[in-house]
Simulated scan of single mutants.
Amino acid sequence: MTAGLTARLERISTDGKMVNVPMDHGITIGATKGLRDIESTIDAVTRGGADSVLTQKGLAGRVHSNKNGKGYVVHLNASTTMGPDANDKRMTGTVREAIRAGADAVSMHLNIGSNHEPRQLEDLASVTETAHEYGMPVLAMTYARGPGVDEHDAENLAHAVRIAEEMGADVAKTAYSGDAESYGTVADAVGIPVIMAGGDPQTDRQMLRNVRGAVDAGAAGVSMGRSVFQHDDPEAMARGVSTIVHDDADVPEAMDLAGLAE
């Protein structure tokens, strides 16, 4: 691992633990709640304890002055809910564009088991090669997602994160299997950090239970989008998540410290 790669990984983490808030959803679902005034949301979640935020390259100018010195990840592929197949993630940026945008890392989304898996694997191989030439970390968002694929099966998720490592990614993100015991199978499948995807929003308490379970299973943290940036109080939700990941709090303690009622 080069000095540059190590330095940039430290910019998106705290002592090896990661709380990332992805906000690339503007391409996927449009300018939804929390993304219209993204400057305020970025300020709130980073004050709440997020180590990094993530957007597409075009929003870089709205990110840097509001992220309170925290890390920045540029996402390199996308699809939309208006298109024919949301699993068909296509390249939207390059490593070089991310560098020009001031990124500390790049990320890509792969749907393992989908009809688009072969091309997405090729895209990730190309990105990791270029990124590592520049000492740029790669976060691979590898989901088990396709026809007949159980998106929360631990063995499927373990396979997905193993693909991320095999392809040269530095961090792997994937869905939660539902409990700490089975998620241990996922975290143990690789030698790189695994971070839990937030998934569809649930109650605050349940989302924090998921975070606690993932951390107990050996995950290095979380990458939680809609449950944080669409929250009525994004700073409080980020603080609740961060308290578990960084301070090893239990769920009631995290709820109390963050001022979350439910």
Results as ranks from 00 to 15, higher is better:
Val241Tyr: 05
Glu181Leu: 10
Gly184Gln: 01
Gly198His: 06
Val222Tyr: 08
Ala154Gly: 03
Tyr183Cys: 15
Ala220Trp: 15
Gln230Asp: 04
Val215Gln: 11
Ala197Ile: 00
Gly191Gln: 10
His159Cys: 04
Leu208Val: 06
Asp216Gln: 14
Gly198Gln: 09
Asn210Lys: 05
Gln202Asp: 15
Val171Lys: 04
Glu151Ser: 06
Phe229Lys: 04
Ala219Gly: 01
Ala197Gln: 02
Gly184Lys: 01
Gly199Glu: 00
Pro234Ser: 09
Asp232Trp: 11
Ala172Glu: 05
Glu166Lys: 13
Ala169Thr: 07
Arg212Ser: 13
Ala217Gln: 01
Met207Cys: 10
Ala169Leu: 02
Gln202Met: 12
Ala214Arg: 01
Gly168His: 14
Ala164Tyr: 07
Arg239Cys: 13
Pro193Lys: 07
Ile163Gly: 12
Ala164Glu: 00
Ala217Phe: 11
Glu166Leu: 15
Glu235Tyr: 04
Ala164Ile: 01
Asn210Leu: 10
Ala217Asp: 13
Met167Ile: 14
Asp188His: 08
Arg226Asn: 04
Gly240Asn: 00
Met196Phe: 06
Ser242Asp: 03
Gln230Cys: 14
Glu151Ile: 02
Arg239Met: 09
Arg205Asn: 11
Asp188Leu: 03
Ser223Leu: 15
Asp170Phe: 02
Arg212Gly: 10
Tyr183Ser: 11
Glu166Phe: 15
Val161Tyr: 00
Ala154Cys: 00
Arg226Trp: 12
Val211Pro: 09
Lys173Ile: 12
Pro193Ile: 06
Arg209Thr: 15
Asp188Ile: 03
Asp170Met: 00
Gly240Thr: 12
Arg162Cys: 09
Met237Leu: 00
Thr203Gln: 06
Leu157Met: 02
Ser182Thr: 05
Pro234Gln: 07
Val161Pro: 03
His152Thr: 13
Arg239Lys: 14
Gly168Ile: 10
Ala169Cys: 03
Asn210Ile: 14
Ala164Met: 04
Arg226Lys: 11
Ile163Ala: 09
His159Lys: 10
Asp179Met: 13
Val228Met: 14
Pro234Thr: 14
Ala214Gln: 08
Ser242Pro: 13
Ala220Asp: 04
Ile163Asp: 07
Gln230Arg: 10
Glu155Thr: 12
Gly213Ser: 14
Asp204Cys: 06
Ala197Asn: 00
Glu155Lys: 08
Val215Gly: 05
Val171Trp: 10
Tyr176Ser: 07
Thr185Met: 13
Asp200Val: 15
Asp216Cys: 15
Asp233Leu: 02
His231Cys: 00
Ile192Gln: 12
Glu235Ala: 15
Met196Ser: 04
Thr185Pro: 08
Ala220Phe: 07
Met167Tyr: 15
Asp204Ile: 13
Ser227Gly: 11
Val241Leu: 01
Tyr176Cys: 04
Ala175Cys: 08
Glu235Cys: 04
Val228Ala: 10
Val222Thr: 13
Ala189Cys: 13
Asp232Cys: 09
Arg212Val: 10
Glu165Trp: 10
Met207Phe: 03
Ala219Phe: 01
Val215Glu: 05
Ala220Cys: 05
Tyr176Leu: 02
Gly199Ser: 05
Thr174His: 08
Val186Asp: 12
Gly168Gln: 05
Glu166Ala: 14
Ser177His: 13
Asp188Ser: 12
Asp233Asn: 08
Val228Glu: 14
His231Glu: 02
Arg226Thr: 09
Asp216Gly: 07
Asp150Cys: 03
